[in-house]
Design a protein around this nucleic acid. Structure first.
Lengths: 210, 210, 210, 210
DNA sequence: GATGAATGAGGTTTCATTCAT
DNA sequence: CATGAATGAAACCTCATTCAT
């Protein structure tokens, strides 16, 4: 009966609810308008709070963005990945396929990469990232370990090659997802679907015995 | 006898040289400081021209960035890709490997993706992109056709699978390169090198007959 | 039997102690950081009370500063000046010297002058000054009368000139102390010590008979 | 025929005139409202220029204040002091009296001291002071040397004591003027005029032979 | 009575863009 | 044509003060 479950006072409850709403709205606006064209005033107005109130939750615009993009979704995404891996049915390839589709559709990585690009070279942003990093360490760890375990299972069952290091397979997998994010005229002309791209990857890590 | 080959007047020659210098410097600064922290004044100062002069070449900051990042290098990069493909020696896999290393090291795609992310959702930027698009159409075409041809050659010689569509192979290849650009704590922990990632891809498109 | 001497309730006692602590801390912070960079939140945090609580004691930041700088020390300083003057030993010159050193070292006038400069022209501050003025009237009176009496004693004993009005001597004396407060590059180059400056003053008010 | 006397282009002339107007207006507003209650917007509005234009002349509000208070008047004041000292008529005491009255009436030291108090402890302000310091070094030197020379002349003619160091006399003189600046209820009750205060000083540095 | 969260109002500063020279 | 100075517009952020609990 830890008191973290103790009933929050009305004030605290309202504050917590507003924080969640703030994060949700912030994410929406950042995604809709991009970092540059999003102003703190607009976020506050949409939430229905004073601009200054945001600063009682987050020290800077950068910190708000990091929180909105990272914290908002990472835990949920990680949880879903774990669920997929825990499924009794399906082999490694099948599970990787499901994870791939889920993560591409969740848009999480697109936002994450966008954030990383935008905040690159911004000293304050680096600090914000660090300040918030620990809050998602658990998710990062779980996410990584889950993927690693999945691939090693695939190797153990002979489904995946053992000649390619697991780390390379994981890294390539994440890269594969990240790449789906942004539209580029250079590649938009290629009609290939996400599925076809995934096939190249799966083929690349699979064993090819007769 | 088109007069586009007529000798340029001194004025015109100087103007053209300055334009090239401007593009070069702009790219440097954008890459060095990022879009946000780059000011038109600084670019002009580094080039040694007046700020207003930039606006006689480009309609906006966005247009300058598009030009600096896209036009500045695309032609050069395309040319090198064509050269590699024209080489008498080496099969498709070997050439893809060389192209991969060249493009990763040239940093072209990192900058391009960064630009796309940053300018996403910015209406003025979209207009700028369109306004400049036609200037690089030739390069885009050449680049695409060269890669497509290379992969189809590989298919013809039996080196690459025919079951995967060429367009998917090309798209995955470009995605592979784009993914190398940005460091992310999520994948930075995986020690896999670029080479190992490339192997996954090459393995994924190769035939696996005994 | 005024009930101002009645035993205070625990509540009232605590409140009074907190007020004293508040004034002390406020003075510290104002002196440490200056008026501009001192925030009510910081003062409250250092005292360990809620920000809003300050406003149950003082109507505004200005009023708090006036109280903290004026009331906090004036009584103590006045008391010490009275003590020095009451000393059986020493003539007027000697006592003025001791008072001078005490007041310079106590830093009271520096803070007072700083406050006056900073709050000058601030209507709210003038109101605060007036609102608090009466609280220190006694000290002001005592301070003034003590100095005046001391100098008139000096005149009576023939130690000080009678040709200079007492009021001028007092005014010059206070000005002398006030002047020691702030460092200015214009006069910092003059190596003269406080003592030497004092000598000019003492020489200026002394009789010079052979 | 240095080209610093070359006719300025119309643009340059206008800019210079506006700068002078800016400094003058800035001084007025700072003196009228105090540092805190003066906003850059108001200064700009009164001058009739855009707020941003101020920043093409001065890097910060602090730098503007330093320039407006220091540079605006120091040279003029110094020049007048030098003129008084160069006067063939009058001995040292007489000249000190005239300098005293001039400087008190010019209000220069009051503003200077106010500035020093306000900017104390403000890091940006210290930088601004340094950045501008060199611009007034000449005036500082001239001012100091002129006063020093005047007093040493007084000593040479036997008018002033030689037992008190010149530096102490100068320092006390400047302190004397600085003290006239701010009204304080503590001393405002003393009816003594500036003149009477000055007498104490002059008496303090004079020789007292029979 | 005490509080901490909320905020309105405003401040300084930046910068892409324009325009008179 | 090239320019540097001017600037409008807006952004982020701060903080004294209030008010519901």
């Amino acid at each position: 009966m830890g008191n973290e479950n103790a009933p929050l006072s009305l004030r605290e409850k309202q504050r917590k609810e507003r924080l969640e709403l703030l994060l949700q709205v912030a994410e929406e606006v950042f995604v809709e308008k991009g970092y540059l064209d999003t102003s703190m005033d607009e976020i506050a107005a949409r939430v229905g709070i004073g601009t200054a109130t945001i600063y009682s939750h987050f020290a800077s615009k950068e910190e708000l963005m990091v929180a909105a993009i990272l914290e908002q979704n990472f835990q949920k995404n990680t949880q879903r990945v774990v669920e997929i891996c825990s499924d009794a049915e399906g082999n490694a390839t099948n599970k990787l396929t499901r994870i791939f589709h889920f993560l591409v559709s969740s848009d999480f990585f697109r936002r994450r990469v966008e954030m990383l690009y935008i905040l690159r070279g911004n000293a304050e942003a680096q600090r914000a990232l660090l300040a918030r990093q620990e809050k998602i360490t658990t998710s990062v760890e779980t996410f990584s370990q889950t993927l690693t375990a999945l691939i090693e299972q695939g190797k153990a069952t002979g489904e995946l090659q053992t000649s390619t290091p697991t780390s390379a397979m994981v890294k390539a997998f994440i890269g594969l997802i990240r790449t789906q994010g942004i539209t580029d005229t250079l590649i938009s002309k290629y009609s290939a679907s996400n599925d076809e791209i995934l096939q190249v990857y799966l083929h690349g890590i699979a064993t090819h015995e007769q």
